[in-house]
Nucleic acid binder design. Structure first.
Length: 553
DNA sequence: GTGGTTTGCGCC
DNA sequence: AAAGGGCGCAAACCAC
């Protein structure tokens, strides 16, 4: 595979390097250049650039789609933390700038201040050579190479999803809001239903000026009513018997909708009947994505019914049942757990295996093992399951112990956990309470590393899944721009949504399955683990997974 | 006033 | 029902 590095030069120029050849062109001429090379698979290269979020959106806007890339910023971060990489191989010209590089700002929110001039014009070819050398010299070259390719493909998918957007019916969303909250209020005012609820809460508490958002106000009012609670969480309040609680909880729920996914959210994030969130690949240290605008990874079930496919199109929604337990089975090569994972419901498989009495016990025990539960029913369940699935439970326990010793752990493909900085092994010289604090910190980091290995490898499986999927969808589509073919519009850790012409729904479903199976083989090689999908073909996202929910837990 | 932290709730 | 990991976001809160 040819690699072509793109670097920005001063004066809106682009430096093109690769295969010992150098060339320059105007930035404005880049889309045509890239399109020409992409059109011929024989010469389509892997494009190497500092940041996909900086290079790809203008290409997409010009109607140019790219098959492969190498995102130097993301990959450098992976290599910097990877235990199997000799960090000295990453040092060299401009390397301090590369280390400091942050993500490019989303196009919708350009930075107010110009980025520093040098970091805009870094030499991609020099950095690419360092990264290739670092991978080649590693004992984990194959796995790291896969991780870097997946990470980069994910960055392409993220840019494409932001470009295409989730089809969104503004009028449906507005109707939903008006039904629950009343008409849209004037600036700074509360919608009528919330207004009325505030009045009711104040009346019932006999507290005229009470602010239901204020912890202090609520604790005072509850105190006067003879109720003593440690906090004002909904789950705590639900156990309190007082006539103000019911309207208060109703207020909290509706106020949250109003504040986070109300009219203001619509104004800011939905335009032209598309919701365009901004993703940040590997925004979490485990490699999971985060979202720094629009809240794509956390928009509530409540408003999903406003995501509706275009006329003649459908949404194909697929999610992996119990991704992380399956990943744990694969990475630990625990054949008993892998056997339980055959079929649609891993927890039920554990029951059939005779390991536990009920599905709920299986779930509690496995989640407890992955999250580090020590007490309660979950903790007790963990002990029993350790005997049935020794390899799986040993893997997470070893990760936890490594964390407690202050050591770095790694995912299956080699992503390293962040280290704790220098103060870890300092001798505590304070009173005994400091020792206790240190111990708590140690345990907390152990729970983090315990979860890191599973969550991080799960993220790697998911990256491989969407990386393969986006190319499969592209091949399905015939001709035309990316949003005129079947294309990804949403990715939520273990779930994807594809927007596709209705006639292609079955083909999309088949590609989803094949990509999932392929991801399992890529990550776990010869150790077979099932990754069954539940797939819904729907017009409205709100209708997805209904059967599953009905049957679930 | 501003900026950073805490709290509570949404998602996986 | 809560417990354990990772996030984002909005408002309250607190220090400056």
């Amino acid at each position: 595979m040819t690699r072509v590095q793109l670097s920005r030069l001063p004066g809106e120029r682009v430096l093109i390097t690769g295969g010992g050849v150098e060339d320059q062109l105007d930035l404005a001429a880049l889309p045509a250049y890239v399109r020409a090379r992409e059109d011929d698979p024989a010469v389509a290269p892997r494009w190497v650039w500092d940041d996909t979020a900086r290079w790809y959106p203008p290409l997409l806007a010009a109607g140019v789609r790219v098959a492969r890339c190498h995102d130097l910023r993301l990959c450098r971060r992976v290599l910097r933390r990877a235990p199997a990489v000799d960090g000295r191989l990453l040092d060299g010209d401009e390397s301090a700038h590369w280390d400091r590089l942050g993500p490019a700002a989303a196009p919708a929110h350009p930075t107010l201040f110009a980025a520093d001039e040098t970091s805009e014009h870094l030499r991609a070819d020099l950095e690419d050579a360092r990264q290739l050398a670092a991978v080649a010299a590693s004992t984990e070259a194959t796995r790291l190479g896969l991780l870097l390719a997946a990470e980069s493909a994910g960055a392409l998918a993220a840019a494409e999803m932001t470009y295409a957007g989730v089809p969104w019916r503004t009028e449906l969303h507005e109707r939903l809001l008006t039904d629950l909250l009343g008409p849209r209020p004037l600036r700074d005012a509360l919608p009528p239903v919330l207004d009325e609820l505030v009045a009711e809460v104040r009346r019932t508490f006999g507290a005229p000026g009470l602010n239901p958002e204020s912890r202090t106000d609520l604790l005072d009012a509850l105190g006067r009513a003879g109720v003593d609670v440690p906090d004002i969480r909904a789950s705590t309040l639900r156990q309190v018997d007082h006539p103000a609680i019911e309207p208060l909880l109703r207020y909290k729920k509706l106020a949250h909708l109003f504040q986070t996914n109300g009219w203001t959210w619509l104004d800011e994030w939905v335009s032209g009947d598309r919701f365009r969130p901004s993703y940040q690949p590997a925004g979490s240290s485990t490699g999971r994505w985060s979202s720094n605008g629009g809240g794509a990874l956390s928009f509530p079930v409540q408003v999903r019914s406003a995501a509706v496919a275009d006329e003649g199109w459908v949404l194909v929604v697929a999610d992996v049942a119990q991704l992380e337990p399956r990943v744990l089975a694969g990475m630990s090569r625990d054949s008993a757990l892998a056997r339980a994972a055959q079929g649609a419901d891993l927890y039920q498989g554990m029951v059939a295996d005779g390991a536990v009495a009920t599905r709920q016990d299986a779930k509690l025990g496995l989640l407890g093992a992955m999250y580090g539960a020590t007490s309660g029913e979950s903790g007790r369940m963990v002990a029993g399951l350790t005997r049935r699935y020794p390899a799986a439970f040993a893997l997470v326990d070893e990760a936890a112990r490594a964390g407690e010793r202050g050591q770095v752990v790694r995912t299956l493909l080699g992503r390293g956990s962040p280290s704790l900085g220098g103060s870890w092994d300092e001798e505590p010289d304070g009173p005994p309470s400091d020792l206790q604090a240190l111990d708590r910190r140690r345990r907390a980091y152990g729970r983090f590393t315990r979860n890191f290995v599973v969550q991080g490898t799960g993220a790697e499986w998911a990256l491989c899944w969407i990386a393969d999927l986006r190319n499969r969808l592209w091949r399905l589509g015939g001709t035309g721009a990316i949003d005129r073919r079947p294309h990804l519009v949403l990715f939520l850790h273990d779930e994807v949504v594809v927007h596709a012409p209705a006639a292609l729904a079955d083909d999309v479903a088949a590609e989803l399955e094949q990509a999932a199976a392929g991801a399992g083989r890529l990550v776990f090689r010869d150790f077979a683990v099932d990754f069954p999908l539940s797939i819904s073909v729907v017009s409205s996202y709100g209708d997805a997974g209904k059967d599953k929910r009905k049957a679930g837990t």
